[in-house]
């Protein structure tokens, strides 16, 4: 019989020295010709900013290849300077920010293609297990309209919580943990 899974517990309020001693919020240099900045604020159910959360992101490169052995599509290039992983804590005003490059389209279920997106994990005091969400891109209307995961969310307002807002200087992706404007969060299918 396979062993039982170890339960999740909250990250608590005191993780900063252990997890954020190195700044991993810039996946590429801000001077990179294709650099984009994604900014946001994490809010709780009372609309107050959450100053002690940590976000992690995971994404493919612009060619749509993940830097991981399970993605063995050798015809697509890997970029040795781009791991696809980032980590950022929220500041005293609940803000976070990543500098990265836009991921490509990646394979989806049943031979379909998924719209470009970034996987996100959110940890915080008061979250006994992480929250999982995705950042989609506002300039991908057609791909977003065909994306099975996005389209599995029936309520269009709820679906929109996953699409970053273009603010010129940056893309904005606010996270609402609870309430009317709550962000859509995922659980994994087996």
């Amino acid at each position: 019989m396979p062993p039982g899974t170890t339960p999740s517990q909250t990250i608590g309020p005191f993780f900063h020295d252990a997890l954020l001693a190195e700044d991993r919020s810039e996946l590429v240099s801000p001077d990179h010709s294709s650099a984009i900045r994604i900014e946001g604020t994490v809010y709780d159910g009372a609309g107050e900013p959450v100053p002690d959360a940590m976000l992690e992101i995971w994404q493919s490169n612009p060619a749509g290849r993940y830097d991981h052995p399970a993605d063995n599509r050798e015809d697509l290039p890997l970029d040795e300077d781009f791991s696809g992983f980032g980590r950022c804590g929220t500041d005293t005003s609940g803000k976070f920010s990543f500098v990265t490059i836009k991921p490509g389209s990646v394979p989806g279920p049943d031979g379909q293609t998924q719209a470009p997106h970034i996987m996100v994990s959110i940890f915080a005091r008061g979250l006994l297990k992480r929250l999982v969400t995705r950042i989609y891109f506002p300039d991908e209307e057609e791909a977003n309209a065909a994306d099975l995961v996005l389209q599995s969310i029936e309520d269009p307002e709820f679906r929109k919580t996953l699409i970053a807002r273009d603010e010129g200087e940056c893309l904005r992706f606010d996270v609402h943990l609870q309430g009317e404007q709550q962000t859509a969060f995922f659980e994994f299918a087996e």
């Binding site: 709780d44 159910g45 009372a46 107050e48 959450v50 995971w58 493919s60 993940y66 830097d67 991981h68 399970a70 993605d71 990646v106 394979p107 989806g108 279920p109 998924q114 997106h117 996987m119 915080a124 005091r125 008061g126 979250l127 929250l131 999982v132 995705r134 099975l148 995961v149 599995s152 969310i153 709820f158 943990l177 609870q178 309430g179 709550q182 962000t183 859509a184 969060f185 995922f186 659980e187 994994f188 299918a189 087996e190």
Partner: peptide
């Protein structure tokens, strides 16, 4: 004030999370 209240969306298994 931090627990989500709306139903979680089922995420099918893809390369985005098996990597």
């Amino acid at each position: 004030l931090r627990a989500p209240a709306k139903p979680l969306i089922i995420l099918p298994k893809t390369l985005s999370d098996t990597t």
